[in-house]
Amino acid sequence: MLEIKNLHVQAGNHEILKGVDLKVNVGEVHSIMGPNGSGKSTLAQVLAGRETYRVTEGEVLYDGKNLLEMAPEERACEGVFMAFQYPVEIPGVGSAQFLKAALNAIRKRRGLEELDAMEFLTLVKQKIKSLGVDEKLLHRSVNEGFSGGEKKRNEIFQMALLEPRLCIMDETDSGLDIDALKIVANGVNALRTPERAIVVITHYQRLLNYVVPDYVHVLLDGRIVKSGGKELALELEEKGYAWVEEEARAAAQA
Protein backbone atom coordinates (compact mmCIF):
# COMPACT_ATOMS: atom_id res chain seq x y z
CA MET A 1 0.00 0.00 0.00
CA LEU A 2 2.79 2.40 0.96
CA GLU A 3 6.28 2.16 -0.36
CA ILE A 4 8.94 4.66 0.62
CA LYS A 5 12.19 4.37 -1.31
CA ASN A 6 15.41 6.14 -0.42
CA LEU A 7 13.59 9.26 0.75
CA HIS A 8 15.75 12.32 1.31
CA VAL A 9 14.14 15.43 2.75
CA GLN A 10 15.45 18.88 3.58
CA ALA A 11 14.09 21.83 5.46
CA GLY A 12 15.99 24.93 4.51
CA ASN A 13 19.54 23.67 3.92
CA HIS A 14 19.26 21.10 6.65
CA GLU A 15 18.93 17.47 5.59
CA ILE A 16 16.53 15.74 7.96
CA LEU A 17 15.70 12.47 6.23
CA LYS A 18 18.72 10.79 4.73
CA GLY A 19 17.37 7.87 2.78
CA VAL A 20 14.34 6.28 4.40
CA ASP A 21 13.07 2.95 3.10
CA LEU A 22 9.81 1.54 4.37
CA LYS A 23 7.15 -0.76 3.03
CA VAL A 24 3.73 -1.00 4.61
CA ASN A 25 1.26 -3.54 3.35
CA VAL A 26 -2.46 -3.33 3.66
CA GLY A 27 -3.74 -4.77 6.93
CA GLU A 28 -0.48 -4.13 8.78
CA VAL A 29 0.34 -2.00 11.79
CA HIS A 30 3.81 -0.47 11.87
CA SER A 31 5.36 1.45 14.67
CA ILE A 32 8.15 3.97 14.17
CA MET A 33 10.18 4.85 17.22
CA GLY A 34 13.21 7.04 17.64
CA PRO A 35 14.77 9.72 19.80
CA ASN A 36 13.79 13.38 19.68
CA GLY A 37 14.75 15.11 16.48
CA SER A 38 15.39 11.92 14.53
CA GLY A 39 12.91 12.94 11.81
CA LYS A 40 9.70 11.10 12.73
CA SER A 41 7.40 14.09 12.36
CA THR A 42 9.19 15.16 9.23
CA LEU A 43 8.40 11.80 7.68
CA ALA A 44 4.77 12.03 8.75
CA GLN A 45 4.40 15.59 7.44
CA VAL A 46 6.00 14.76 4.12
CA LEU A 47 3.60 11.86 3.68
CA ALA A 48 0.69 14.22 4.36
CA GLY A 49 2.03 16.77 1.87
CA ARG A 50 3.53 19.58 3.94
CA GLU A 51 5.25 21.92 1.50
CA THR A 52 7.83 23.39 3.87
CA TYR A 53 9.82 20.19 3.45
CA ARG A 54 11.69 19.58 0.21
CA VAL A 55 12.10 16.09 -1.13
CA THR A 56 15.51 15.96 -2.76
CA GLU A 57 15.71 12.30 -3.62
CA GLY A 58 13.71 9.11 -3.58
CA GLU A 59 10.04 8.34 -4.09
CA VAL A 60 6.87 7.40 -2.28
CA LEU A 61 4.29 5.13 -3.84
CA TYR A 62 0.77 4.85 -2.49
CA ASP A 63 -1.27 2.13 -4.14
CA GLY A 64 1.43 2.24 -6.80
CA LYS A 65 0.79 5.95 -7.47
CA ASN A 66 3.31 8.72 -6.92
CA LEU A 67 2.13 10.19 -3.61
CA LEU A 68 4.53 13.12 -3.70
CA GLU A 69 2.84 14.54 -6.78
CA MET A 70 -0.49 14.87 -5.04
CA ALA A 71 -1.73 17.95 -3.20
CA PRO A 72 -2.41 17.42 0.53
CA GLU A 73 -6.17 17.48 -0.02
CA GLU A 74 -5.91 14.89 -2.79
CA ARG A 75 -3.98 12.61 -0.48
CA ALA A 76 -6.68 13.01 2.15
CA CYS A 77 -9.34 12.19 -0.41
CA GLU A 78 -7.34 9.13 -1.47
CA GLY A 79 -7.42 7.94 2.12
CA VAL A 80 -4.24 9.24 3.74
CA PHE A 81 -4.71 10.63 7.23
CA MET A 82 -2.09 12.03 9.55
CA ALA A 83 -2.91 12.69 13.18
CA PHE A 84 -0.80 15.74 14.05
CA GLN A 85 1.70 15.71 16.87
CA TYR A 86 0.70 19.32 17.44
CA PRO A 87 -2.84 19.91 16.14
CA VAL A 88 -3.31 23.49 14.97
CA GLU A 89 -5.75 25.84 16.69
CA ILE A 90 -7.96 27.59 14.17
CA PRO A 91 -9.93 30.40 15.79
CA GLY A 92 -13.16 31.35 14.09
CA VAL A 93 -13.59 28.09 12.19
CA GLY A 94 -16.25 26.00 13.88
CA SER A 95 -15.42 22.34 14.46
CA ALA A 96 -18.73 21.13 13.06
CA GLN A 97 -18.38 23.22 9.94
CA PHE A 98 -14.82 22.03 9.43
CA LEU A 99 -15.68 18.35 9.89
CA LYS A 100 -18.62 18.56 7.52
CA ALA A 101 -16.49 20.28 4.89
CA ALA A 102 -13.79 17.64 5.24
CA LEU A 103 -16.17 14.70 5.26
CA ASN A 104 -18.12 15.90 2.23
CA ALA A 105 -14.97 16.71 0.27
CA ILE A 106 -13.79 13.17 0.83
CA ARG A 107 -17.18 11.58 0.15
CA LYS A 108 -17.50 13.53 -3.06
CA ARG A 109 -14.14 12.26 -4.22
CA ARG A 110 -15.16 8.71 -3.41
CA GLY A 111 -18.34 9.12 -5.44
CA LEU A 112 -20.60 9.08 -2.38
CA GLU A 113 -23.56 11.36 -1.71
CA GLU A 114 -22.68 14.41 0.33
CA LEU A 115 -24.30 14.41 3.74
CA ASP A 116 -26.78 17.08 4.71
CA ALA A 117 -26.67 18.75 8.09
CA MET A 118 -28.94 16.19 9.75
CA GLU A 119 -27.20 13.10 8.40
CA PHE A 120 -23.88 14.62 9.28
CA LEU A 121 -24.93 15.29 12.84
CA THR A 122 -26.24 11.79 13.33
CA LEU A 123 -22.99 10.29 12.12
CA VAL A 124 -20.88 12.62 14.20
CA LYS A 125 -22.80 11.95 17.36
CA GLN A 126 -22.45 8.26 16.90
CA LYS A 127 -18.68 8.46 16.43
CA ILE A 128 -18.08 11.09 19.04
CA LYS A 129 -19.47 8.96 21.86
CA SER A 130 -17.22 6.03 21.28
CA LEU A 131 -14.15 8.27 21.48
CA GLY A 132 -14.96 10.02 24.71
CA VAL A 133 -14.94 13.40 23.03
CA ASP A 134 -17.19 16.01 24.58
CA GLU A 135 -19.99 17.00 22.20
CA LYS A 136 -19.50 20.59 23.21
CA LEU A 137 -16.26 20.61 21.27
CA LEU A 138 -18.33 20.58 18.09
CA HIS A 139 -19.58 24.04 18.87
CA ARG A 140 -16.14 25.43 19.49
CA SER A 141 -13.51 26.58 17.04
CA VAL A 142 -11.18 23.87 15.76
CA ASN A 143 -8.81 22.91 18.59
CA GLU A 144 -9.08 26.38 20.08
CA GLY A 145 -8.47 26.30 23.80
CA PHE A 146 -8.56 22.49 23.80
CA SER A 147 -6.39 20.80 26.39
CA GLY A 148 -3.53 18.64 25.15
CA GLY A 149 -5.57 15.50 25.69
CA GLU A 150 -8.63 16.95 23.99
CA LYS A 151 -6.57 17.81 20.95
CA LYS A 152 -5.22 14.29 20.67
CA ARG A 153 -8.60 12.68 21.08
CA ASN A 154 -9.98 15.11 18.52
CA GLU A 155 -7.42 13.85 16.01
CA ILE A 156 -8.54 10.25 16.54
CA PHE A 157 -12.15 11.32 16.35
CA GLN A 158 -11.46 12.94 12.96
CA MET A 159 -9.71 9.77 11.87
CA ALA A 160 -12.70 7.67 12.87
CA LEU A 161 -15.04 10.02 11.05
CA LEU A 162 -13.09 10.29 7.81
CA GLU A 163 -12.33 6.54 7.65
CA PRO A 164 -8.94 6.77 5.94
CA ARG A 165 -7.10 3.77 4.51
CA LEU A 166 -3.65 4.79 5.62
CA CYS A 167 -3.55 6.18 9.16
CA ILE A 168 -0.37 7.88 10.33
CA MET A 169 -0.36 8.86 13.97
CA ASP A 170 2.36 11.19 15.14
CA GLU A 171 2.79 10.77 18.90
CA THR A 172 -0.92 10.69 19.53
CA ASP A 173 -0.19 8.98 22.84
CA SER A 174 2.15 11.63 24.24
CA GLY A 175 0.81 13.37 27.30
CA LEU A 176 -2.26 11.16 27.69
CA ASP A 177 -3.32 9.64 30.97
CA ILE A 178 -4.08 5.94 30.99
CA ASP A 179 -7.84 6.39 30.51
CA ALA A 180 -7.39 8.67 27.54
CA LEU A 181 -4.76 6.32 26.18
CA LYS A 182 -7.19 3.40 26.28
CA ILE A 183 -9.82 5.44 24.49
CA VAL A 184 -7.34 6.36 21.77
CA ALA A 185 -6.20 2.75 21.52
CA ASN A 186 -9.78 1.54 21.18
CA GLY A 187 -10.34 4.11 18.44
CA VAL A 188 -7.31 2.89 16.56
CA ASN A 189 -8.15 -0.76 17.01
CA ALA A 190 -11.63 -0.14 15.65
CA LEU A 191 -9.96 1.05 12.46
CA ARG A 192 -7.67 -1.95 12.35
CA THR A 193 -9.15 -3.89 9.45
CA PRO A 194 -7.70 -5.87 6.58
CA GLU A 195 -8.31 -2.94 4.16
CA ARG A 196 -6.32 -0.46 6.20
CA ALA A 197 -2.78 0.16 7.30
CA ILE A 198 -1.68 2.04 10.38
CA VAL A 199 1.64 3.72 11.17
CA VAL A 200 2.08 4.61 14.81
CA ILE A 201 4.85 7.04 15.64
CA THR A 202 5.63 6.95 19.33
CA HIS A 203 8.29 7.31 21.97
CA TYR A 204 6.74 4.84 24.33
CA GLN A 205 5.88 1.20 24.50
CA ARG A 206 2.72 2.03 26.45
CA LEU A 207 0.33 2.55 23.52
CA LEU A 208 1.78 -0.53 21.83
CA ASN A 209 0.44 -2.66 24.68
CA TYR A 210 -3.01 -1.88 23.36
CA VAL A 211 -2.30 -1.40 19.68
CA VAL A 212 0.03 -4.28 19.09
CA PRO A 213 2.19 -3.63 16.02
CA ASP A 214 3.21 -6.15 13.42
CA TYR A 215 6.50 -4.36 12.85
CA VAL A 216 8.62 -1.90 14.80
CA HIS A 217 11.19 0.38 13.14
CA VAL A 218 13.81 2.59 14.67
CA LEU A 219 14.37 5.93 12.98
CA LEU A 220 17.73 7.38 13.87
CA ASP A 221 19.21 10.53 12.44
CA GLY A 222 17.06 10.39 9.33
CA ARG A 223 17.39 6.70 8.57
CA ILE A 224 15.57 3.55 9.55
CA VAL A 225 18.41 1.66 11.14
CA LYS A 226 16.62 -1.30 12.64
CA SER A 227 13.36 -3.14 12.17
CA GLY A 228 11.81 -5.98 14.05
CA GLY A 229 8.66 -7.37 15.60
CA LYS A 230 6.74 -6.11 18.60
CA GLU A 231 9.51 -7.32 20.95
CA LEU A 232 11.79 -4.61 19.60
CA ALA A 233 9.59 -1.96 21.20
CA LEU A 234 9.96 -3.66 24.58
CA GLU A 235 13.67 -3.85 24.16
CA LEU A 236 13.91 -0.15 23.27
CA GLU A 237 11.76 0.72 26.24
CA GLU A 238 14.09 -1.17 28.50
CA LYS A 239 17.48 -0.28 27.03
CA GLY A 240 17.00 3.03 25.27
CA TYR A 241 18.48 3.87 21.86
CA ALA A 242 22.21 3.86 22.64
CA TRP A 243 22.72 0.26 21.65
CA VAL A 244 20.90 0.74 18.35
CA GLU A 245 23.07 3.75 17.63
CA GLU A 246 26.11 1.66 18.44
CA GLU A 247 24.99 -1.10 16.11
CA ALA A 248 24.24 1.36 13.36
CA ARG A 249 27.64 2.97 13.65
CA ALA A 250 29.36 -0.40 13.55
CA ALA A 251 27.35 -1.42 10.50
CA ALA A 252 28.21 1.82 8.73
CA GLN A 253 31.91 1.24 9.33
CA ALA A 254 31.85 -2.32 8.21
Binding site: T52, P72, E73, I90, V93, F98, A105, Q158
Partner: peptide
Protein backbone atom coordinates in the same frame (compact mmCIF):
# COMPACT_ATOMS: atom_id res chain seq x y z
CA UNK B 1 -1.65 31.02 8.98
CA UNK B 2 -0.04 28.47 6.66
CA UNK B 3 -0.05 25.81 9.37
CA UNK B 4 -3.80 26.17 9.64
CA UNK B 5 -4.17 25.97 5.84
CA UNK B 6 -2.17 22.76 5.83
CA UNK B 7 -4.21 21.32 8.66
CA UNK B 8 -7.46 21.95 6.77
CA UNK B 9 -6.05 20.65 3.48
CA UNK B 10 -4.75 17.52 5.16
CA UNK B 11 -8.39 16.73 5.94
CA UNK B 12 -9.44 16.92 2.32
CA UNK B 13 -10.40 20.58 1.95
CA UNK B 14 -9.00 22.25 -1.18
CA UNK B 15 -6.57 25.06 -0.55
CA UNK B 16 -8.76 27.90 -1.78
CA UNK B 17 -11.64 26.73 0.37
CA UNK B 18 -9.29 26.42 3.33
CA UNK B 19 -8.21 30.01 2.80
CA UNK B 20 -11.82 31.11 2.56
CA UNK B 21 -12.67 29.25 5.74
CA UNK B 22 -9.83 30.89 7.62
CA UNK B 23 -10.58 34.39 6.41
CA UNK B 24 -14.25 33.95 7.04
CA UNK B 25 -13.48 32.60 10.48
CA UNK B 26 -11.36 35.61 11.25
CA UNK B 27 -14.07 38.05 10.15
Amino acid sequence: DEDAIFYLCSRGIVKDAARALLLFGFA
